[in-house]
Design a protein around this nucleic acid. Structure first.
Lengths: 250, 250
DNA sequence: CGAACAGTTGAATTCATTCAAATAAAGTGG
DNA sequence: CCACTTTATTTGAATGAATTCAACTGTTCG
């Protein structure tokens, strides 16, 4: 079913450097031991390999430990669209809970490590550890909010604005994980960016060139530097959160 | 906080005609009694009144008993977009779980009745009734899938296709609730439709006129008849599920 | 009845797409 | 390691779908 290679966990969730994403805070030692037991195995994915495909029966949800994945939905007529890009600490496979089958394909954009969380056992444990249940609900709900922001972008913004929003969102998420946030490698192709943003790759390319020309960014292949954050935030139509402190000081 | 009018429940969830949506199947009598206790009150909304606003602290989620509501998100710069239209049996307010504040506005499109479900008590009860917890997770997950389909529509379809998909989706949801599904009243304005579909109202109007001209629909104000279902499904790029049986027979 | 609002239709404009071609990078096999 | 194919990306020019601007019609409501 999966074109993947299974590992047994070499290190536990309780020592996972990404624990702040995977696990709720304020949980006891014995709780953690139980949660560790949930993650029976881990998968190592090569670039292009799929974690699951739409229609596969839901057995697990997944937590990204290292790497980047995309999820995409497809239409009956063969057209398909990238719905999300996923970074370490994010949970995948949640769209399979609704009717027991994943509704999307999840594909690695680079070599990645993913923890497998048996869903039935997880639901059982969540019942016993209230804070885990709450955290799970929060994760599902935030996922909703994410998608709704994406809807707003596709429905109301011009290509240029969508791209700016996308770059800034990516930057913020990298920052939250302790990665460099003003200079990084785009793990997705222009085709995948365009698909995610609802625009053609030629437009993606043109907009990136335009951003570079205006001094907002520097881009060389998939390596990007965000130069003028204020300019980007202005383009995206949102206030620059990095300046929150300064604003409050005024 | 809410510009609403509170009622005490005159009839219980256990006798709610919409129970198949509100409540999981396969639940015991005593479970039902407990669930009844969750719904402490009900709100009656006039057209245009809001059930909650973004930023309001989450205390409850809501189940629509009668009527239609829209949810919308807004951008910092004032632009806003309709994210969803909601029919009886659907749960609202789920986007507030993530960080304790609703992320959207929910506004009645017509006179509506909504059940208030205290969220904390609900989470507690869900822990005690596994099937209720499971049902809740399914609802959240389906919500995700819904939004992702919407994303696909905004990102990959032309205006005409989006409108066809929208009309068919509405029709299916009405059918699932036992309403007339080939002839009904649109509860939303052209502006709201356009906002939801990511197109201008002039385009909505033009496309509707075009559909009528081609004999796909009949429309007079907000009253619509779907005439040529096959044609609409073809436009939407999806197979007509009403013909599933016939296809299987071939 | 008249004002305000909602919806339709036409014409001009624009943003993004499509088509086409060039360039750059990555992979392949000798 | 190099020539060569394949894939990814960029850029230009022509086209097109949807928007914007504008005018008009139909509804609703005080």
């Amino acid at each position: 079913m999966h074109d993947v290679h299974l590992d047994t966990p070499s290190s536990k969730c309780s020592v996972c450097v990404l624990g702040q994403f995977c696990l709720p805070v304020g949980i006891t030692q014995s709780d953690i031991a139980q949660i560790d037991l949930l993650v029976k195995e881990r998968v190592h994915l090569q670039k292009g390999q799929s974690l699951y495909r739409h229609g596969d029966p839901l057995q697990s949800v997944y937590s990204i430990r290292y790497g980047t994945l995309k999820t995409e939905h497809c239409l009956e007529d063969g057209r398909q669209q990238v719905i999300g890009f996923h970074l370490p600490g994010e949970i995948l496979g949640l769209d399979g809970i609704g009717n027991g089958q994943y509704q999307s394909d999840a594909i690695a954009l680079e070599e990645s490590d993913v923890c497998i969380i048996g869903f039935e056992a997880f639901e059982d444990l969540a019942r016993q550890i209230p804070v885990l249940q709450q955290q799970f609900h929060r994760i599902l709900s935030r996922e909703l909010t994410q998608d709704q922001r994406h809807l707003l972008s596709l429905g109301s913004l011009r290509a240029e604005e969508r791209l700016a929003v996308f770059l800034l969102n990516l930057s913020q998420r990298l920052a939250a994980r302790g990665y460099l946030d003003h200079e990084f490698d785009l793990r997705m192709s222009r085709v995948e960016m365009g698909s995610y943003l609802g625009i053609q790759i030629e437009t993606v390319s043109r907009m990136l060139s335009r951003f570079a020309e205006s001094g907002l960014i520097q881009i060389k292949q998939r390596h990007i530097k965000l130069i003028d954050m204020d300019g980007l935030y202005e383009l995206a139509g949102i206030p620059n959160p990095e300046r929150t402190l300064e604003i409050k000081r005024l």
